[in-house]
Amino acid sequence: MKWKHKDLLDLDVLQAEEIEHILHTAGPMKEILQRPIKKLPTLRGKSVVLLFYESSTRTRTSFETAAKILGADTTNFSVTQSSVNKGESLLDTARTLQAMNVDLVIVRHASSGAADFLAQELRAGVINGGDGQHAHPTQALLDLFTLKEKLGGFQGKKIVIVGDVLHSRVARSNVLGLKKLGAEVVLVGPPTLLPAEMNYLGVKISYDLDAELPGADAVMALRLQLERQQNGLFPSIREYAKLYGLNLERIRKTGKQTVVMHPGPMNRGIEIASDLAESPLSVIDEQVTNGVAVRMALIYLLIGGASSDVA
């Protein structure tokens, strides 16, 4: 399959076959990651800039590792020590990077649409490393890769996503991808974090976790931003954990060897109990490994092919 996208901003623009193609490409990348000498010359001479406006050790390190294994040069544009602190706008930062002729920009930003904005301004490719509440396509892809490995496929599989869906870019991108690949998705959370407008996703919405667990092939807990409680979106952490927290005993209600996922970092004892996170059902560490593989695949597809591949 010929790759025809300059950027990866969200999964909405990808066809199911294109998503499968990324997952397929990530397979050999994962093997490379297991080698004792993890270095390829594939992207030698390519420059990748990591532009992280939100702190994120996990995602930034994952991207950086992926790019370096492929042989690209990476530059961390650390926002706290840069011109951004002197009031430079995202637009001017983008133009500066363009002038340096970089090949790929990976951006994380607190504003929804920041990645779309950069993609519009830059000739370089842009990967969205998470923008506001909008999208986190590489997290979704690594989750899809993990699910495919564990479940073999998506048709007829029931995936429950539980937590703060309203504010979650992870949930949004995951639902888009899971639907395209044919999975059944159920979103679960309290009404204040799962309001009616989330019906736009076209999947089942439920407030009752225990009612949705039976038959679930995978359950994904979302990270709870603790400041939501201060903003009155739910009464207490205690009640949240009681209603929506995952633990080993609760997961047995699925009646299956359910795959348990979390995008990290975890609030242990709130959205997920340690007994479950440390159990064999949990694939949380593997999600991290797969994250590097999937990001290698994406970086390769975006800037590794012949330059004519870039539309």
């Binding site: 929804s112 923008d131 506001g132 509440q133 909008h134 407008e197 736009y200 996703l201």
Partner: peptide
């Protein structure tokens, strides 16, 4: 405006 359009874009409504 808060609604399905804002939810889709991930913009606060």
């Amino acid at each position: 405006r808060r609604g399905e359009a804002s939810a889709r874009l991930g913009l606060r409504g």
